[in-house]
Amino acid sequence: MKTQEELTEIVRDHFSDMGEAATLYVQVYESSLESLVGGVIFEDGRHYTFVYENEDLVYE
C-alpha cells in the first residue's frame, strides 16, 4: 500500500503533462489510505478536481 505522499506524487506526475501546476491540494477529510481526493490549479487558471483510487485517476 502506498503512502499519501506517494499517491500525491503519482497524481502530480500525471498532471505535469497538462502544464505548470500552481497548486495541488488534497482534501484530507475525504481521502484515505486507499484513495486521494483533491484538486489541481494550473498557472493558466484551469482547475480540476480528482479522485485517485486503485491506480485509477478520475478528474473533471
Rank of each mutant, 00 (worst) to 15 (best):
V58I: 10
L24N: 00
Y29V: 03
K2S: 05
V37P: 00
E20N: 12
E9T: 10
T8S: 07
G19M: 07
A21L: 15
Q4Y: 12
H14F: 15
Q27I: 15
E20K: 13
E55R: 09
V37I: 12
T8Q: 08
N54Y: 08
L7F: 03
T3V: 05
Y59P: 02
I41L: 06
E43N: 09
V51N: 01
A22V: 14
H47V: 07
D17K: 15
Y29N: 02
Y25C: 13
H14Y: 14
G38D: 01
E5C: 14
D13H: 14
S35K: 15
L24P: 01
S32G: 08
L36M: 06
S32L: 09
A22S: 08
L33A: 10
M18I: 07
G45W: 10
L36A: 03
I10D: 02
G39N: 05
M18P: 03
H14G: 06
S32D: 08
S31T: 06
F42V: 00
Q4T: 05
V40E: 00
E53M: 13
R46F: 09
I10E: 03
E55M: 10
E53L: 12
Y25I: 10
V26Y: 06
E30Y: 13
V51P: 00
L57N: 03
N54I: 10
H14S: 05
D44M: 06
E6N: 05
V28K: 08
M18E: 04
M18K: 06
E6I: 08
N54H: 08
N54P: 03
R12Y: 06
E9D: 08
T8R: 08
Q27H: 11
A22C: 15
L7Y: 04
Q4F: 13
R12H: 04
Y52L: 07
K2Y: 06
L24E: 02
Y52W: 10
E5Y: 08
L24F: 12
S16G: 07
G45M: 02
V58C: 13
S35D: 01
V58P: 02
Y59I: 13
V51R: 07
V37C: 12
S32A: 11
D44H: 01
S16Q: 09
E20G: 12
F42P: 00
V37L: 06
T49E: 04
M1S: 10
S32R: 06
F50V: 01
H14K: 11
E30H: 10
T8M: 15
V51K: 09
L7P: 01
Q4P: 06
Y48W: 06
V11R: 03
T49R: 08
K2M: 08
E53C: 13
K2R: 10
V11L: 06
N54M: 07
Q27E: 14
E53F: 13
M1P: 12
T23R: 10
T23F: 14
H14R: 11
D56W: 14
I41Y: 09
Q27C: 15
E55A: 11
S31P: 13
E6R: 07
Q27L: 15
L7D: 02
E6Y: 07
V28W: 14
V26S: 00
L57T: 01
L33Q: 09
I10S: 03
G19L: 08
V51A: 04
Y25A: 03
G39S: 10
Y48M: 04
E60W: 14
T23E: 10
V28E: 08
R46I: 05
H47I: 09
F15D: 01
Y59F: 12
R12G: 03
V40R: 00
Q4H: 06
D17F: 14
Y59R: 02
F42K: 00
L24R: 01
E9S: 10
M1D: 04
E9C: 14
F15T: 01
R46Y: 04
R12L: 13
G19S: 04
R46W: 11
D17I: 13
T3Y: 04
E6L: 07
R12I: 08
T3E: 03
F50Q: 00
S31R: 06
A22K: 13
F42I: 01
V28I: 12
T49K: 09
Y29H: 04
L36S: 01
Q4C: 15
H14I: 14
G39K: 08
E30T: 09
H14W: 14
S31M: 11
F42Q: 00
Y59D: 02
Y25P: 02
Y29F: 10
F42C: 10
Y29D: 04
T8H: 05
G38W: 09
S32P: 02
L57R: 01
A21E: 08
D56Y: 14
L57H: 04
Q27F: 14
D56E: 14
D56G: 12
Q27W: 14
V26M: 02
V28C: 15
I10T: 03
R46P: 03
G38Q: 04
E30N: 14
S31Y: 11
Y25L: 06
V28R: 04
S31A: 13
H14D: 03
E60C: 14
E43I: 11
V58L: 10
I10G: 02
D17M: 14
V58Q: 09
Y48A: 00
E20P: 11
R46K: 04
L36G: 01
D13F: 13
L33V: 09
K2W: 07
T3M: 05
G38E: 02
